[in-house]
Design a protein around this nucleic acid. Sequence first.
DNA 1: AGCTGATCATGC
DNA 2: GCATGATCAGCT
Length: 225
Amino acid sequence: MRSLQPPATEAALIDRADALAGATVGALCDSLGHPCPADLRRHKGFIGDLVEAALGAPAGSASAPDFPALGVELKTIPVRPDGAPRGSTWVCTAPLFALDPGPWRDSAVCARLARVLFVPVLGDGPPATRRFGVPVLWSPSADQEGVLAADWDTLTDLLVERAVGQWTADHGVALQLRPKAASSRHRVEVLDHDGDLVETVPLGFYLRRSFTAEILAIEPRLLRP
DNA sequence: AGCTGATCATGC
DNA sequence: GCATGATCAGCT
């Protein structure tokens, strides 16, 4: 799916993303010579991968931003007609075994969210009919970073305390812990707060819908190109 | 309508 | 097997 050089500058990246706005996923598939699945049930990451290719993200850069030279992470995000996201946004895996996850500023979550290019995707029908909105290049405001840092402390405290029963999605204002696995049958063993060996599902950090809604709260007409 | 827990494909 | 990209689907 890769045929383009990475953008040399942030401005070049934004130009490419802007050029997508208004186009359908089907049209982008055509221009990249890539088949478009009839639904996303068994192709959940398809649009994300497609946009990576369209913007020239280098392939297979694990545990690095999508655009390593620019320090920019790419997120395609499905939005409703009013521009609000349809769901939560994956960030990264949660450290279930760390004795000390460390401070917010040194965290993988902080690094991932330092600079993010959100590419909205409108529509909920067949993928080919969905349409790209105007991208938003975001870095957390001081207020937003405060919320994220507080959540980081809350959630990593639960992990460090081995409060396994509390490892649910109900904690955190902007960030939350959620299962991240191929299935619930995939378990990991951890020691709980009593020192007992218990099984749990691998967890990841996600951004709550309300938080990304705030990020994407821009002039709604921009979302209907 | 929204959230939570469950799930799917692919590449390395 | 794990990390990447997310959406699905049941329940409240």
